[in-house]
């Protein structure tokens, strides 16, 4: 979708929808939201809905950073400790790589 052709009110609706949907463990929506509406929130000349869009973009950004941090920590721990966890480690895997690791 090309945001240039969308009315400002609609932009706000969309931005809010992405922001709210992100709470259902969908961090990608927050990432998309913060990137997609970045121009609208900070670079465009002022318009009525901009302040609200800005809040959503900032919150989405914070949300995605927290998610990213959690995911990175988990993946690191999992990859380092998977073998030690034995059957639990295997059970958490979808496809088990060959070899001793």
């Amino acid at each position: 979708m090309d945001l240039r052709r969308v009315k400002n009110a609609e932009k706000l609706v969309m931005c809010r929808r992405y922001y709210l949907a992100g709470f259902f463990a969908l961090p990608f929506l927050w990432i998309v939201n913060s990137v997609w509406f970045f121009q609208e929130a900070f670079r465009k000349p002022q318009y009525t809905e901009q302040a609200e869009i800005k809040t959503y973009v900032i919150r989405s950004f914070i949300g995605s950073v927290i998610w990213l941090a959690i995911v990175i920590v988990w993946v690191t721990i999992f990859q380092l400790k998977r073998v030690d966890w034995g059957s639990t480690g295997d059970a958490l895997l979808f496809s088990i790589p060959h070899g001793s690791a």
């Binding site: 073998v83 059957s87 295997d90 895997l93 088990i96 060959h98 001793s100």
Partner: peptide
Amino acid sequence: MYAAIDTETCLRRSRHFSFLGKNEL
């Protein structure tokens, strides 16, 4: 060779089932 670590681990992993099918080690 596909085996992993020890018999216990490798038999457990052989029984691991995913949509890719059984992966006997």
